[in-house]
Simulated assay, not measured.
Amino acid sequence: MKHTAARTWAHANRAVLRLTTRVQEGLEEAAHRPDRGDISTTTVIIWVAAVTGAVLIAGTIAVVISKYNGMLNGL
């Protein structure tokens, strides 16, 4: 039983070491190359506004069609 626990701790320690190393490498790369092609805040704002506008337009069209549905049937 002790052997299994020791192996488990060894695996956990190696996993933590790999994760720590990877995070450190990522931070070093970010320091060397600050613009790595991440999505900017402005881009996110523009996309949210575009999607919101499209949903509002579609909702307005749906409301108008449902309101005047009887009148549109004869066209």
Results as ranks from 00 to 15, higher is better:
K2W: 02
K2S: 11
H3M: 04
H3S: 06
H3F: 13
T4I: 10
T4C: 05
T4Y: 11
A5Y: 02
A5F: 02
A5Q: 02
A6N: 09
A6Q: 07
R7W: 07
R7M: 09
R7Q: 07
T8D: 14
T8H: 08
T8R: 15
W9A: 11
W9N: 15
A10C: 08
A10P: 00
A10M: 10
A12G: 11
A12Y: 13
A12T: 04
A12I: 07
A12V: 05
N13R: 12
N13F: 07
N13C: 12
N13G: 07
R14P: 00
A15F: 15
A15I: 04
A15T: 07
V16Q: 14
V16R: 15
R18M: 08
R18L: 15
R18C: 12
L19Q: 14
L19D: 15
T21L: 14
R22G: 01
R22W: 03
V23H: 12
V23I: 10
V23Y: 11
V23R: 07
Q24I: 08
G26K: 09
G26T: 05
L27T: 09
E28D: 15
E28R: 15
E29K: 15
E29W: 08
A30D: 14
A30I: 14
A30P: 02
A31C: 09
A31S: 13
R33P: 00
P34C: 10
D35S: 07
R36T: 09
R36H: 14
R36Q: 15
R36C: 05
G37F: 03
G37K: 06
G37H: 07
G37T: 03
G37L: 04
G37I: 00
D38M: 10
D38H: 12
D38N: 08
D38V: 14
I39F: 04
I39Q: 03
T41C: 03
T42F: 00
T43I: 05
T43P: 07
T43F: 00
V44F: 01
V44N: 06
I45G: 02
I46Y: 04
I46W: 06
W47Q: 12
V48M: 09
V48S: 14
V48C: 05
A49S: 11
A49P: 01
A49W: 07
A50W: 01
A50M: 14
V51Y: 12
V51C: 06
T52H: 04
T52S: 11
T52C: 06
G53H: 04
G53P: 05
G53Q: 05
A54N: 09
A54M: 05
A54V: 00
A54F: 12
V55K: 10
V55I: 13
V55M: 00
I57V: 15
I57S: 06
I57Q: 04
I57C: 04
A58T: 05
G59V: 02
G59N: 05
T60Q: 03
T60L: 10
T60W: 01
I61N: 04
I61P: 00
A62M: 11
V63C: 01
V63R: 02
V64S: 01
V64M: 02
I65L: 08
S66R: 08
S66Y: 02
S66H: 04
S66Q: 12
K67G: 01
K67Y: 08
N69H: 06
N69Y: 03
N69C: 08
M71Y: 07
M71D: 11
L72W: 02
L72E: 01
N73T: 07
N73Y: 11
N73P: 02
N73Q: 14
